[in-house]
């Protein structure tokens, strides 16, 4: 379980700690997630590979900042096969 952050810290540091946790916590391990904070609302954008990791984003944020709310806008990768081919010349 991730250790809770100090909610009184400047927002820049909170964003940094959240992004670091999402990159390093084995439940997610995603460096490509982008965090923004507005008031006590945390927005997470980017792509995760599975729905389990999408759910884990919420778990980790809740552990770090239990009284803040999360808007989890991360996409779960479920991409279709391509419908065309690019010719390189």
């Amino acid at each position: 379980m991730a250790q809770a952050l100090d909610p009184q810290e400047p927002v820049d540091y909170i964003v940094g700690h959240l992004e670091e946790a999402l990159a390093c916590d084995e439940r997610v391990n995603e460096q490509g997630l982008h965090v923004t904070v507005h008031g006590r609302r945390i927005f997470v954008d980017g792509t995760v590979s599975t729905k389990e990791r999408h759910a884990a984003v919420a778990e980790i944020v809740a552990e770090l900042l239990p009284d803040w709310s999360l808007v989890n806008q991360a996409t779960v990768a479920d991409f279709p096969e391509p419908s065309d081919m690019e010719a390189l010349s």
Partner: peptide, 21 residues
């Protein structure tokens, strides 16, 4: 994959110059 937003990309290489397109 997050850039492609597809399962993979398909690229076609080395077609003869006269009819590559």
């Amino acid at each position: 994959q997050p850039v492609l937003r597809m399962a993979y990309t398909l690229l076609c290489l080395g077609a003869p110059a006269d009819d590559s397109e």
